[in-house]
């Protein structure tokens, strides 16, 4: 199984997420993670979808099918080495009286994770990194009793020097500057 990051640029219209996921469902491809946000261009959304698949060919076919959706501007299927990517994770950790105290220094320096909220008997720690880095930290923090754990799903940008302008040159988009 190889991990692929599919980046889809679309017009920002109702129902697009549905249109896109239908294509995955029909081919029985499970979505590992999915994030959506508007890009630097107004009205252009970016979907980042992570899947695992053993066949590169199947992924190429998937990409072409997604491209067929009328509102889709461009689609890219990347291998991990082609993209810079990260996720963000939040850990809600119980800190009852008398429990082993958190080693904040290790958390900060070794794991590059930060406490972003101090509750009465819990804290929320934010960890940014790859899936692996997040799970390494997960293993480390587990003995402290995790009340809740959430990951954002991957965000990624391609490693080429090109920006969106090179990919979608035709349109006159408004920019966020």
């Amino acid at each position: 199984m190889t991990t692929y990051t599919i980046c889809i640029f679309t017009e920002n219209t109702i129902g697009l997420l549905n249109r896109i996921t239908i294509i995955f469902t029909r081919r029985r491809i499970n979505i590992e993670s999915l994030t959506v946000s508007e890009t630097e261009r107004k009205g252009v959304s970016r979907f980042t979808i992570v899947i695992k698949h053993e066949s590169r060919e199947a992924v190429e076919k998937l990409v072409r099918q997604i491209r067929k959706i009328v509102e889709v501007l461009a689609v890219f299927g990347y291998l991990n080495e082609d993209v810079v990517y990260n996720e963000i994770a939040l850990f809600k950790i119980e800190t009852p009286l008398g429990a082993k105290p958190l080693d904040i220094e290790t958390i900060n320096n070794q794991y590059k994770a930060w406490v972003v909220y101090w509750g009465l008997d819990y804290v929320v720690i934010e960890k940014t990194g790859t899936e692996e880095e997040i799970f390494t930290f997960f293993e480390y923090i587990k003995p402290h009793s995790i009340l809740e754990f959430v990951r954002s799903g991957r965000v990624a940008v391609g490693k080429t020097e090109k920006g969106l302008v090179e990919y979608l040159p035709e349109a006159e988009w408004e920019y966020y500057l």
Binding site: T10, E11, V70, E71, V72, L73, E170, A171
Partner: peptide
Amino acid sequence: YQCCQTLVSYR
């Protein structure tokens, strides 16, 4: 009414 002859995302 203007007949549509091109779309940004569908070419």
